[in-house]
Design a protein around this nucleic acid. Structure first.
Length: 573
DNA sequence: GCCGTTTTCGGCCCGACTGTTTTCAGTCG
């Protein structure tokens, strides 16, 4: 059983307990455990043979360790099954309606027998909600509006989209008179894979002016709330944006606070408490006296901490890192010298070899690899051996006509469902760079998936495994990979792993990239560009690498081309 | 339900906004 599946059960348990009005700290304990399990690079199921081993995970004590054992052995938790009997799934779904929390949902269910989103809509339409104690006309209207949000699945948007929208609105609001500072905060600033909402923070002399501008912004569809310092609006697709306005002396504290994560902030708060201080979005206080708040740097320094890059503010490893000394310098976009995964018109790309090379050069890349699809991907016009050999000749020709960038002859070679490669060894050995990937049969059982990966890793001509899991963020599940075995094999056979920078892939994810680093496996960040514009996606791969805590030394395509090729030769030797 | 070099009991981060309230609970982040 995978960590994600175990965590999901505890998360569901937390929701069900919360609806039933359980002790909030008990609910939190389940949530904390779910998160710790999700964040761990180690397999919980593998540790389930021993209570002591399980208890080493943060937030897992005697009781939860036992529940995990039962879950791994039998596939279910009896308590969860019992709770599901008591509270229908439709009731849990009602939690996704903005404005409805566990207390209101429980009241609707228990006292008025409303058991699903459909029944909730009917009740609201028939004006049956407004009379209920604790509910009124406004709540009823809010429910009708909120149902759309809940049913549009409360979907998170990709970081690429969130970042673009947030930065656009931020830019528009910066021109409002009296706005001294304005920053994007929240999960967007932390560069999470997806954002559930957007957070903007402003220092402004006239809050009303900036709120008026936001209210009239072309991207704003509705106003959810507006107070003296805080305003919430709804954008397209139900996406919410929160704007906070604070004075200059609080800007740093507020930026820190609204960047989060929540878990990171909880640790800071406790640390402040231990120092007889109090931290909130207005500043760091000793009694009534403000100690810090103007800048993030000031706040962290007063707590005896470095300014953590936003990408690692997740209460995973950052506090332990800070204990060990200065924080490592995380990889940056400017460190990237090569882009080793891209397509041309030979398969499903939209530009020629030379056009791609020119575009890469203009973005400061010193080398690229042209890696069109192999024949199995027939929909993408994948290349068979004769076409590939001809394509490589064309690459040699293109190289002659462009200076200042090195073009490597590569291939994105499919690992077929029967655990063989899509091209023969005598072809692959002529390549400068071979990416092996799973495209089809991602739902095969773990055994077969691992057989396929091992076939690629042990092939002497394969340099790297591209987008290893095949997952699409929020859309397609990853292949069932035993990561311990997979990464150990990559390390042993000196095969690199990719962080695919496409915002829909971001594969490997941060957790597994960190696990690869731990084993010393070189990681390559690639755009998988199918046209020029895609080359700008490199930043999203870099964000993912930063979230994994990776430095320049962990990323092979930060090397100059000769050093990179030398490393490749050594790996093959 | 977890956790502990002040503690094995009694804590567990903190504030803004809304609605239905006559002084605050619920929700949200």
């Amino acid at each position: 059983m995978q960590n994600g599946a175990i965590a999901a059960q505890f998360e569901e348990l937390a929701e069900l307990l919360e609806i039933q009005g359980a002790n909030p700290f008990r609910v939190r304990a389940y949530r904390n455990a779910a998160r710790a399990i999700l964040d761990s690079t180690e397999s919980i199921a593998a540790a389930a043979d021993s209570i002591a081993k399980l208890r080493e995970f943060p937030g897992i004590g005697e009781d939860l360790a036992k529940k995990i054992q039962v879950l791994v052995q039998t596939g279910s938790i009896p308590q969860l099954a019992e709770l599901r009997e008591q509270v229908p799934a439709g009731v849990v779904a009602m939690l996704r309606v903005p404005g409805l929390g566990p207390k209101k949902v429980f009241a609707l269910f228990q006292e008025h027998g409303i058991r699903s989103l459909d029944e909730l809509r009917l009740a609201a339409e028939q004006n049956r909600i407004a009379g209920i104690k604790g509910f009124g006309k406004k709540t009823q209207d809010a429910i009708l509006k909120g149902l759309e949000v809940a049913e549009s699945a409360g979907r998170r948007v990709y970081l690429s989209e969130a970042k673009q929208v947030a930065e656009q609105i931020a830019e528009d609001l910066r021109s409002v008179p009296g706005v001294a500072q304005l920053e994007v905060a929240g999960s967007c600033r932390r560069r999470k894979e997806t954002c559930g909402d957007l957070d903007l923070l402003a220092e402004a002399s006239q809050p009303d002016a900036i709120m008026d501008r936001l209210a009239g912004h072309r991207l704003v569809e509705a106003i959810i709330a507006r107070g003296d310092t805080k305003m919430s609006v709804r954008l397209f697709k139900g996406l919410q944006l929160d704007l906070r306005v604070v004075p200059a002396e609080s800007f740093g504290a507020a930026l820190q606070y609204f960047t989060g994560s929540k878990e990171h902030n909880v640790v800071l708060r406790r640390r402040a408490q231990d120092m007889d201080l109090k931290l909130n979005e207005w500043g760091l206080f000793r009694g009534e006296q403000m100690v810090a708040g103007r800048t993030e740097q000031e706040v962290y320094a007063a707590l005896g901490l470095p300014v953590f890059p936003p990408e690692i503010r997740e209460n995973r490893t950052e506090f332990a890192l800070a204990e060990q000394g200065p924080l490592p310098r995380l990889v940056e976009l400017d460190d990237i010298r090569g882009d080793l995964h891209m397509h041309t018109t030979a398969s499903d790309g939209s530009a020629s070899i030379l056009e791609m090379a020119e575009a890469a050069k203009s973005r400061g890349r010193e080398y690229i690899a042209i890696t069109d699809h192999s024949k199995r991907v027939s929909m993408a016009n994948g290349l068979d051996a004769p076409r590939l050999l001809a394509h490589w000749k064309a690459i040699d020709e293109a190289q002659k006509s462009i200076k200042g960038i090195r073009i490597l002859k590569g291939i994105e070679c499919d690992i077929l469902e029967d655990a063989t490669l899509d091209l023969p060894d005598d072809v692959l050995e002529q390549a400068d760079w071979v990416i092996a990937v799973l495209h089809y049969g991602l739902q095969q059982p773990r055994e077969q998936i691992m057989k396929r990966l091992m076939c690629a890793i042990t092939n002497p001509h394969v340099d790297i495994i591209g987008h290893p899991t095949g997952r699409l963020v929020d859309r397609r599940k990853p292949a069932d990979i035993d990561f311990d075995v997979f990464l150990d094999a990559c390390a042993k056979h000196r095969v690199m792993v990719e962080i695919n920078a496409n915002p829909a892939r971001l594969d490997l994810d941060d957790i597994h990239a960190a696990a690869a680093k731990k084993r010393g496996i070189p990681i390559v960040i690639s755009t998988d560009a199918h046209g020029f514009a895609d080359m700008d996606l490199m930043q999203f791969g870099v964000f993912q690498a930063r979230r994994a805590g990776l430095t320049r030394d962990d990323i092979a395509n930060t090397l100059p081309v000769d050093a990179f090729l030398e490393r490749l030769r050594q790996a093959k030797g």
